[in-house]
Amino acid sequence: MTRALLVIDVQESFRRRPNWQAISNPRIAERVGRLVEAARAAGELVIWILHSEPGSGTVLDPEGGYVRPMGDLHPLPGEPLLVKTSINAFTTTNLHQQLTQRGVREVVICGIRTEQCCETTARVACDLGFDVTFVTDATATSAIPRLLFTEDDRVVTSAGIASGIDLALHLVAVRHGVAAAARVARSMVVYARRNGDSAQASAMLRHRAHLNDCVHRAQDLIDAGFDRPLPLSELAGAAGVSERTLTRLFNRATGTTPLRYQQALRLERAEHLIAQGTTVESAARVVGFEDARMLRRLRAAPGQPD
């Protein structure tokens, strides 16, 4: 047995999402089923991988009952069923061990989503020395509305010339911090956010299109240290006003409070880390939460900090 079929995230969770109607491959379960039958007939290993986000309160929370194979797809006795909490299927499971113990040299990849869990798993498999067959017709994804730019490992692309500015600011924020990105935006004399529909703009950039220097000073401090405790008294001191005045001015200029602004920055950074394969628990610690409970609540909140 030198080849294995990896069935990634073909689970009921996705059919419970509102955007399932816009899925790129509505017959994903049927096509994956054919691959499974062919692999079994050839005596090849089939490994099932499901994605789980415990405590999130979403359709990916196992408590909801949807973290299970989709439709009529079911593992047979002896077929491993692994549950991951990272984007790729290796980091938080024993998939590598399962493959090497069975002498597998080639993996065939299918599942949901094409450009996320399937593709990242394929990259990691290549790095580990496996031959990879990527069955595009047996993968599925859905469009992300109002996307200005997107990242794919070391490749980043924007929707146009103007959105290239948003992309450049995003890269500065990721590599040098949100405070640096804000300073660049101001020195370029450009709006940090181009319009109200630009969902890709960072939380920091969304709240910088105002002219209140007092609030900007407080934001500079939050941007530079959002991962540590920031008492309102410290922010007010940096802004040169009373705590009450800062709260009033901050809300008027940004539409939110200093605490919710800090939480939004933490959440955004955590989402970026999780998308790169970091666990929810590790991401929570990195961005300053004492444990993952608050991060899970923020991720599950309908509006999320804004």
Rank of each mutant, 00 (worst) to 15 (best):
residue 185 A to C: 07
residue 231 P to G: 03
residue 191 Y to A: 13
residue 121 T to I: 14
residue 12 E to P: 02
residue 278 T to V: 15
residue 291 D to N: 15
residue 110 C to H: 04
residue 35 L to E: 14
residue 263 Q to D: 15
residue 222 I to Y: 01
residue 89 A to Y: 06
residue 293 R to D: 13
residue 250 F to D: 09
residue 298 L to N: 07
residue 295 L to A: 04
residue 85 T to D: 09
residue 133 T to E: 15
residue 33 G to C: 11
residue 305 P to K: 00
residue 94 N to I: 02
residue 125 A to F: 05
residue 181 A to P: 01
residue 140 A to G: 07
residue 56 S to P: 00
residue 46 V to R: 12
residue 51 H to Y: 10
residue 131 D to M: 12
residue 82 L to A: 08
residue 197 D to G: 13
residue 201 A to V: 10
residue 199 A to W: 13
residue 44 E to V: 07
residue 46 V to G: 09
residue 298 L to F: 03
residue 12 E to K: 09
residue 20 W to L: 11
residue 258 P to K: 07
residue 173 A to L: 04
residue 117 C to G: 01
residue 219 Q to G: 04
residue 233 S to V: 12
residue 127 D to Q: 13
residue 76 L to K: 13
residue 282 S to L: 12
residue 19 N to I: 07
residue 249 L to N: 06
residue 276 Q to V: 02
residue 241 V to A: 03
residue 33 G to E: 11
residue 111 G to K: 05
residue 77 P to T: 07
residue 244 R to I: 13
residue 272 H to D: 08
residue 291 D to M: 14
residue 168 A to V: 04
residue 84 K to T: 09
residue 235 L to S: 08
residue 209 A to Q: 06
residue 25 N to F: 07
residue 284 A to V: 02
residue 305 P to M: 00
residue 257 T to Y: 10
residue 109 I to R: 13
residue 248 R to H: 12
residue 256 T to S: 15
residue 268 E to K: 01
residue 260 R to T: 06
residue 223 D to A: 10
residue 133 T to R: 15
residue 118 C to T: 06
residue 72 D to G: 14
residue 306 D to Y: 02
residue 95 L to Y: 06
residue 263 Q to A: 12
residue 179 A to P: 00
residue 110 C to E: 05
residue 261 Y to W: 09
residue 263 Q to S: 10
residue 274 I to H: 00
residue 93 T to G: 09
residue 54 P to W: 04
residue 299 R to Q: 07
residue 49 I to A: 03
residue 302 P to V: 01
residue 250 F to P: 01
residue 284 A to Q: 08
residue 153 D to L: 11
residue 28 I to M: 13
residue 94 N to D: 13
residue 48 W to P: 02
residue 80 P to Y: 09
residue 304 Q to Y: 05
residue 99 L to D: 04
residue 217 R to F: 06
residue 32 V to W: 11
residue 237 G to M: 11
residue 287 V to W: 08
residue 69 P to K: 04
residue 78 G to V: 08
residue 259 L to I: 00
residue 295 L to Y: 04
residue 55 G to D: 09
residue 51 H to W: 05
residue 219 Q to V: 03
residue 140 A to N: 00
residue 162 A to F: 13
residue 83 V to D: 14
residue 139 T to V: 03
residue 301 A to H: 15
residue 23 I to K: 00
residue 139 T to D: 07
residue 87 I to E: 00
residue 192 A to I: 00
residue 211 L to I: 14
residue 122 A to P: 07
residue 258 P to Y: 04
residue 21 Q to M: 14
residue 55 G to N: 05
residue 51 H to V: 08
residue 182 A to Q: 12
residue 185 A to W: 01
residue 234 E to V: 06
residue 232 L to N: 02
residue 247 T to Q: 15
residue 231 P to V: 02
residue 29 A to H: 08
residue 231 P to W: 07
